[in-house]
Nucleic acid binder design. Structure first.
Lengths: 68, 68
DNA sequence: ACAGAATGTCAAGTATATTTTACAAAATAT
DNA sequence: ATATTTTGTAAAATATACTTGACATTCTGT
């Protein structure tokens, strides 16, 4: 998995820290950090919560074309 | 969580059984069944694989408006 | 009515997402 | 320069996604 720079950018756009987004989403800061770093694979429900918190859609933040 | 009828419909549109989609996505049939029944909360990576297999986007199959 | 395929469901196990605590590095402001 | 905030990272524990196997039910065709 590669870094999620779209998430980082959307967060910046709203001037939210990882901490603030974590609180808005009800998860730990490390979870947000790990998602941005591409270190794992959140559940769709968490993705949806993050999208709602940032005013973005799944496709905007999490879509990836089939690789290869 | 509520049933994912969009997933069921997209699968029907492609004339794929749960078994066939499970194989295409590399998971068990029960996992596909549980997702359609709304019994759980797949990872984003699995959602992406399912989308690719069915030729749909995340927003088409998994988007939900904020409830409440 | 019957056979076979597809779907629904359950229980026990395994893999992995997420938490907590803690500290180090980097960025930002004073 | 130095204090403060923000971000990166790690290890151990916990919650939960997902598997396997098995059986019951519903659907589809003949």
């Amino acid at each position: 998995m590669s870094k999620n720079l779209r998430l980082k950018a959307a967060r910046a756009e709203r001037d939210m820290t990882q901490q603030a987004l974590a609180e808005a989403a009800g998860v730990s800061r490390q979870t947000i950090n790990a998602i941005e770093k591409g270190e794992y694979n959140p559940t769709i429900r968490l993705c949806l919560t993050i999208c709602h918190a940032l005013g973005k859609t799944l496709d905007e933040l999490f879509w990836e074309e089939k690789e290869q």
